[in-house]
């Protein structure tokens, strides 16, 4: 049992930030709870519960981008049509197989991103070029990729944003695991943006234990500037296999993971093509 001495449930974000800042490292933000119960660091003696701070919910911003409040649960996200429809259903692929209902009811988007461990959501968000809104002394918006690479030491992640796609775009996500409800051995998220029949930009992201989501630039290059044909897709899948250096552990060999990454890339791109109405 974590040795917690103080629990706060502040009514607004300003209070949250004030408490967090003043605790100087001895406080943790509490979102859904699940992760902190299991892994509360010993130096932590204060919990700041975000549930009353008004951070839940999904909205469409004036520029068409989507704002997902950090305290939005996975259950609520799964029924938020703007999110699940985004990029042809990329995040629906992620969310439909995400954990059990018990976990979805409890786990939050912000808590999940902040814990920064093996994730099915993060590759999806990275492929969608998601941004995060971060509260410190002031409020800033930055790319999720940058945030994960160098998170500010003390901060409140308040929102995840999905930018609106310009022109036709779609994505897909797939995961490979031992059983239905298990950590993925490996997962793949792809997004393609088309312009006049050719791929303008592409995102190919692979996640595995220890790697939250790695963009595979060679595969993205193999797609960019080309029509989304079967040959292009195969080339991208081969580029993934060539570029990826996955881990070996008790669950799977590196060889097998590399192979899966290729299969997953091909399948995601084929599904994205279908979603775009392109024949792949």
């Amino acid at each position: 049992m974590p040795t917690i001495a103080h629990y706060h449930r502040p009514p607004d974000l300003d209070t949250v930030w004030g408490l967090l800042r003043d605790a100087e490292g001895s406080a943790r933000l509490l979102a859904g709870g699940s992760d902190l119960v299991l892994r509360c660091p010993p130096e932590v003696d204060t919990l700041i519960d975000l549930s009353a701070a008004g951070l839940a919910g999904v909205s469409v911003r004036p520029d068409g981008s989507l704002a997902i409040g950090a305290m939005t649960t996975f259950s609520d996200l799964l029924v938020a049509a703007p999110v699940t429809d985004h990029l042809g259903g990329l995040l629906h692929d992620v969310l439909a197989d995400f954990g059990s209902v018990l976990h979805r009811n409890q786990a939050t988007v912000g808590g999940h991103v902040a814990r920064a461990r093996m994730s099915d959501l993060i590759p999806g968000l990275l492929a969608a070029d998601a941004e995060v809104v971060v509260r410190t002394e002031d409020t800033s918006t930055r790319a999720l990729a940058d945030h994960l690479a160098a998170p500010p030491t003390t901060h409140v992640l308040t929102e995840v944003r999905l930018p609106v796609a310009r022109g036709p775009a779609a994505g897909a996500f797939t995961r490979f695991s031992r059983s239905a409800f298990d950590h993925a051995l490996l997962n793949v998220a792809c997004v393609v943006h088309l312009d006049a029949g050719v791929v303008r930009t592409a995102r190919v992201v692979v996640g595995e234990t220890g790697v939250l989501g790695r963009r595979l630039r060679a595969a993205e290059a193999a797609l960019t500037g080309r029509p989304l044909t079967e040959a292009t897709i195969q080339a991208a899948a081969q580029a993934v296999v060539a570029e990826l250096d996955p881990r070996q552990d008790a669950l799977a060999s590196a060889d097998y993971r590399r192979h899966l990454a290729g299969v997953g890339t091909r399948r995601c791109l084929q599904r994205a093509a279908e979603r775009l109405g392109e024949v792949a």
Binding site: S100, R178, S179, D182, H183
Partner: peptide, 23 residues
């Protein structure tokens, strides 16, 4: 599964999977 030092790897239902309704 046992690791090379003779320790059982699966010590919880996260690592030792038993079938759920979806399996």
């Amino acid at each position: 599964a046992i690791d090379p030092e003779g320790r059982a790897r699966g010590t919880d239902f996260g690592r030792y999977k038993i079938p759920s309704t979806l399996d």
